[in-house]
Design a protein around this nucleic acid. Structure first.
Length: 626
DNA sequence: GAGTTTGAAACT
DNA sequence: CAGTTTCAAACTC
């Protein structure tokens, strides 16, 4: 019996496996579970979407969210692998199978990790997440959340095994082909600031003494960045310029506010400081390593910048480059990375491979993107006049938007994305279609997702663009002043019942509940239904027939069989998922077979074709009472 | 693609 | 907080 459930609607067979994670249900679920992206697969993505998954392994790190029992914090590039800076400036990922793929990012992503809700306990009072990490002005926000993510980098990661950290997690390297050193520029330091944030686990020390010293230093009230290593070590042999720079660069205490968005853009433009930069970098690089890359700053040191660029609008010497990846859609089908847009967003984008590079740009970023994902690269100018280059992976070739004059000479390797369908309006990666709101109201899905509208949108009189950045920020503030949770995920995990660690993680529910009158919560008018969660006591709906769970407590049983047929992945694999919904609480039983390691990474480069798509057959019917 | 329906967001 | 209006997505034809 084919059940008339949202699953069928949500899982669009036309989507590639990598896009699974952007399906509506996934969107919901991403807030409730966290999987190691190493085990990226449509199944995991799908399971993420279905949410309450009982993992085999208990969370390695205890859940510390208090208020709402929020799920796993993000595993943003939480690679324990040492990050060294070697031969090239290619972002690389080490996969657990030793394949040195060019997959730059792959990690589970938790859209809700980025929410203020989920981070509220970390940054009390801090406006934690701005999706617009891509924006230079909001850069600080982005980096600020990194330490949080790292602190819990393995939480809830079913594939996480502390004894095999080096194998289980990603490492990403920013390598300088020329110098073999990491970017010593200020932008890098800026992120050191946020990256470390007192989390010693973030670094790998050569000896216990170093670690102890580090900890000790970090405990000093004024320590934030430089005290990472003994000052004597830092200053030793440095020129006065370097010392001065180091002193100058003592960052302010970590705080994230909108006002800060334009701060910390200390461009070290003076040639006289380049030596200091280099020395500083050398010191920093010598004394410590970090496991993780603050990916949003694919910082590129450009000693001789201008001549290296085809387009001077793209990258200037000493400018920061924010490389952000976001899913442009605020729709449920691919809004996952659009929410929060932190490292996890990158981590979550394990889809179609893209290589974004510039012939003369000594940095390549290999990013796996789902088809509906765009890459925005912003360059901060001295006057903070952002540039935006956006490559929408749904399109072939460069996709400068916002301002064509800012187009770069990026080349987009579409080797795996040739068949990517256009997803303009009502496709898989729908964008907004606002006409009257200027895209500055929550009506606008893009705005609501804290993303800027792009060329994919069909909106009119749109002000949700970089050109109107101030206006956008003001609008956000205004809305948040009215409702501080306005930009938080609508679907949050259900508070856990009991403390049984073996219990299935709490399912999700709509934060505010729906108010449906006519749709019986059976159509996407209903936000609960749309989010793939059952109605709850919060709902005020009439005649609720939400197939994910009625507010009056109706159980639904369904068995979902997923068949994945990939030409370059594993064939004939199947996973069975049992979904049991009860009163808005769902449970999943999962049976997965990963047939080979190819499977794990087979999702990286495949593009959906007719023969390469998932089929979801809902074998089970409506449940007992549904 | 146009028109209708729907419910959230915004407003009063 | 409740009622009304506005809005854009979802849906239908």
């Amino acid at each position: 019996m084919v059940m008339d459930t949202p699953e069928r609607n949500q899982i669009n067979p036309s989507l590639s496996r990598v896009q699974w994670s952007f399906l509506p249900s996934v969107n919901v679920a991403k807030g409730t579970i966290s999987y190691d992206a190493e085990y990226d697969s449509p199944v995991f993505n799908f399971l993420n979407g279905l949410s309450p998954i009982k993992t085999e392994k208990p969370a390695q790190i205890g859940q510390t969210f208090s208020s709402l029992s929020f799920p796993s914090p993000p595993r943003a590039f939480a690679s324990p692998n040492l990050t060294s800076f070697k031969e090239s400036k290619v972002l690389k990922r080490h996969n657990p199978f030793g394949k040195s793929s060019d997959v730059a990012i792959a990690d589970s992503f938790h859209p809700y990790h980025n929410s203020r809700e989920s981070q509220g306990n970390f940054h009390d009072g801090i406006s934690a997440v701005d999706d617009s990490i891509a924006l230079p002005g909001e850069h600080t926000n982005f980096s600020a959340e990194i330490p949080q993510a790292l602190k819990y980098n393995n939480w809830g990661n079913p594939g996480y095994d502390p004894s095999h950290e080096d194998n289980s997690l990603d490492s990403i390297e920013v390598l300088n082909q020329e110098s073999g050193e990491f970017d010593p520029k200020g932008q890098e330091l800026e992120h050191w600031d946020n990256l470390i944030s007192g989390d010693t686990d973030f670094f790998v020390f050569n000896s216990p003494n170093e670690a102890a010293a580090f900890k000790d230093i970090m405990q000093k009230p004024d320590s934030h960045l430089m005290p990472l290593v003994p000052e004597s070590s830092i200053y030793n042999g440095l020129s006065d310029d370097s010392k001065a720079k180091i002193e100058d660069y003592r960052p302010e205490p970590l705080a994230v506010t909108d006002q800060m968005q334009d701060k910390h853009y200390v461009a070290m433009t003076s040639n006289t400081k380049e030596k200091a930069d280099a020395e500083f970098a050398s010191v920093m690089n010598h004394n410590k390593r970090r496991r993780c890359l603050d990916f949003e700053t694919a910082s590129v040191q450009r000693k001789n910048s201008d001549h290296n660029l085809k387009s001077d609008s793209l990258v200037h010497s000493n400018e920061k480059q924010l490389v952000a990846v976001k899913c442009n859609s605020s729709s449920q089908q691919c809004n996952m990375p659009a929410v929060g847009l932190d490292l996890n967003a990158l981590a979550a984008l394990k889809g179609d491979k893209k290589v974004i590079s510039n012939d003369n740009w000594p940095c390549e970023i290999h990013v796996n993107l789902p088809s509906c994902t765009s890459v925005q690269i912003y360059t901060s100018h001295e006057h903070h006049d952002p540039l935006a280059v956006e490559v929408d992976s749904s399109d072939i070739g460069p996709q400068p938007v916002e301002d064509s004059s800012h187009a770069s000479d990026f080349t987009v390797d579409e080797d795996v994305n040739q068949n990517s369908p256009q997803k303009k309006t009502h496709g898989d990666c729908k964008r907004c279609n606002c006409k009257k709101s200027k895209c500055l109201k929550l009506y606008c899905e893009c705005f609501a997702a804290r993303t800027y509208c792009t060329g994919n949108c069909s909106c009119k009189n749109c002000h949700n663009k970089l050109d109107h950045k101030d206006e956008v920020l003001q609008a956000r503030k205004q809305i948040e002043s009215r409702n501080p949770l306005a930009f938080t995920p609508k679907v949050i995990p259900e508070p856990e019942i009991g403390n049984d660690p073996n219990k299935t993680p709490a399912p999700s529910r709509h934060k505010r509940g729906c108010n449906c009158k006519k749709s019986s919560c059976q159509k996407k008018y209903c936000e609960c239904f749309q989010a793939g969660v059952g109605c709850s006591i919060n709902c005020r709906c009439d005649t609720c027939k939400n197939t994910f769970g009625r507010k009056d407590g109706v159980e639904i049983q369904a068995e979902v069989e997923i068949e994945t047929c990939g030409k370059e992945v594993v064939e004939n694999s199947s996973q069975k998922i049992e979904i049991q919904n009860s009163n808005g609480m769902s449970r999943l039983k999962i049976s997965l077979n990963f047939l080979s390691e190819e499977r794990m990474f087979g999702t990286l480069c495949s593009q959906p074709t007719v023969s390469d798509q998932e089929r979801i057959d809902i074998l089970g019917g409506r449940g007992r009472n549904g």
